[in-house]
Write a protein that binds this DNA or RNA. Structure first.
Lengths: 213, 213
DNA sequence: AATGCAATATACTCATGAGTATATAAACTG
DNA sequence: CAGTTTATATACTCATGAGTATATTGCATT
């Protein structure tokens, strides 16, 4: 994209190009966000001080303000990353071949997995109460298309006959609720990996718990 | 229980018996807890000050300390009420006639309803992070029998053939997750009443979303 | 070399809110 | 009535933690 005549430096050179510095900066920013997400998940937003987040990365608080603005911004940024991952999951599922039902399942599995990852957990664990009206509105506008995607898979599936006919809104609430919840209890070390949990839960939701005769 | 020879006073008498005073005290305590639960749900635990809770009932902070101890105690007390309601739901369902599957459904519906009520919402919205180790342990011991009850309905149902054969733990997680989630978004005014939401969700979970052919 | 901007630290300010010491009034007990 | 307990208020203390003012270093651009 850039037409600047930067020679292809040996990667060991101590002189960095503008791109490298840019990347550097992004890497630091991301490291701060990841550290913050982990601590928010572990202790909760209010119980996490920016001093602690900074210290866990080996810097001090003003550095966070330099890269990210205020505390709410940090949280919003973390949640935004999680929500973008969910949007990507929806887009990927939409592009798949097969029935709407298959696309829905595929989306749901990925949805559950994202909710068990650091940034996804932030999304799940952050209640609306914690955000300013502006922040809330920003995040709502990121959540809306995800919910819309889920409902559109459902509506398509009902039309095509692969999904049971039910109120799409209530069905979406139920599925989302079930697959959000692991974001509340999942811990990276213990038990089955997220992909297994996701698969098992989606199977249950698909089949229902009533035995078929 | 008391053998004291209190005459049966006219209820309009300004002189209260020990029982009446006791009841009085309990009523005040409950009013404080309800006010606290509402504010915790509306703003989150950390964002709620005991000054505000007290003011919302027309008293001041020391009164709360008089009736309830410290802030964590207030929260734990609220959650305990919710958890006892869930335990009662389990006991009631266990006593019902019919198949294990029917008892499970009945339990689940009530479970969902409790989660949409004030004290139940407190249970759902309070993450483990917010509690001291001791508080956490106390609540865990109240939660355990509820989870155990759900699993026992499931296991019975599988044995009797009315419930689909699946990992009971994973099935319980999935059902609980789905029915916990309304505690996060339900607002008493808007939309359908809790009983309708509960019924609709349990139906969906029972049948699954895959159309039967 | 001079100037400016990027990155980071130290060392503050300031508000909030949990928890408490103490006073007081009413109600109950003997 | 005297003494004690209960219920409640006023008016503190004190820690924490968000956010900021300011200094420092060093690279970058001319």
């Amino acid at each position: 994209m850039s037409a600047s005549v930067q020679p292809d430096l040996q990667s060991t050179s101590p002189f960095r190009t503008a791109e490298q510095r840019e990347a550097d900066r992004a890497a630091k920013r991301n490291a701060l966000l990841l550290a913050a997400a982990r601590m928010f998940n572990a202790r909760g937003f209010h119980a996490t001080s920016l001093d602690d987040v900074a210290a866990s990365v080996g810097v001090t608080k003003p550095t966070i303000y330099h890269y990210l603005g205020n505390k709410e911004q940090v949280l919003i940024e973390c949640m935004t990353i999680g929500l973008i991952q969910l949007q990507e999951a929806a887009a990927a599922a939409r592009a798949e071949p097969g029935t709407a039902m298959e696309r829905l399942c595929s989306f749901l599995r990925r949805y559950a997995e994202v909710n068990m990852a650091e940034f996804g957990q932030c999304v799940i664990r952050t209640g609306d109460e914690l955000l300013s009206p502006e922040g809330l509105e920003k995040l709502r506008s990121l959540k809306r298309p995800i919910d819309a995607a889920m409902r559109s898979f459902i509506v398509e599936g009902i039309e095509e006959g692969s999904i049971v006919s039910a109120d799409p809104k209530m069905l979406a609430f139920t599925l989302a609720g079930a697959l959000n919840w692991p974001g509340r209890w999942y811990r990276p070390d213990a038990g089955s990996p997220p992909s297994e949990i996701a698969t098992a839960m989606v199977d249950i939701l698909m089949q229902g718990f009533a035995a078929r005769r």
